[in-house]
Simulated assay, not measured.
Amino acid sequence: MTMSRRTLMTALLGTVAAGGALALLRGMTSPADAAPAVTVWKAASCGCCGGWVDHMRNAGFPVTVHVVDDVDPVKARLGVPERLQSCHTAEVDGYVLEGHVPADSVARLLRERPAAKGLAVPGMPQGSPGMETGAKDPYQVVLFGGSAGMRVYETR
């Protein structure tokens, strides 16, 4: 079988392209490998907390869940202000997460590394991660514990 110059060049370029793509894929890490671990404290009776945990895992965060009888002592130990409290509390890479904080807000927090204690979504707003009921209420993601006190980090 005689191979034309064009066929040979096409085959060679295809091989080089496939090898380059494979090299790129080998150098990539999965989001779960790159994302820091999230530790969550929640009550056994809270179903929406499980929805938030699923949301974080789907975003690539490895999550460990501690089911406790009372989450309030955890909130107190981590310094979550009463007016920002929600149903579950978490820690990630030195920050506190209170309530239904979206995973992309957490990713932004970890990228920007502001001098703060963490992020909170006070209450349990409809439409926030874990609270998807079909309704969507506007809500705020609050940065707290920094020198500026509390401030709106994002409005959703």
Rank of each mutant, 00 (worst) to 15 (best):
S105Q: 15
M131W: 06
V96E: 05
V96N: 09
P125R: 12
T133Y: 12
Y95C: 11
V92I: 14
A103F: 01
V121E: 01
L97T: 08
A135W: 10
P122R: 12
V92T: 11
P122Y: 12
P129C: 05
R108E: 14
V96P: 09
G118H: 11
A135H: 15
A115S: 11
V121G: 01
R111M: 09
A103K: 02
K117E: 02
R111E: 13
E112Q: 13
E91V: 15
G99V: 06
P122D: 10
A103P: 02
A103M: 05
M124L: 04
G134A: 08
T133V: 06
L109M: 12
P129M: 07
S105M: 07
D104H: 15
E98D: 11
G94I: 08
S128V: 01
P129Y: 00
V92F: 07
A135S: 14
V106Q: 07
V92Q: 01
R108I: 09
G118W: 07
G127S: 10
V96T: 15
G134R: 08
R108G: 01
E132I: 03
D104C: 00
Q126C: 00
R113M: 04
M124D: 04
G94T: 05
G123N: 10
A116K: 12
A107K: 14
G118P: 10
Y95R: 13
A115V: 11
S105C: 14
Q126N: 03
M124E: 06
P129E: 07
V96S: 08
L109T: 02
S105N: 13
D93Y: 13
R113D: 04
D93A: 15
H100E: 05
E91Q: 15
E132S: 08
E132R: 06
S128F: 06
A103T: 05
R111K: 13
S128T: 03
A103H: 06
D104K: 14
V101Y: 04
P125E: 06
A120N: 07
Q126A: 15
V92G: 03
V96K: 04
L109W: 04
G118I: 05
V121P: 01
P102H: 07
P114W: 07
R111Q: 14
Q126H: 13
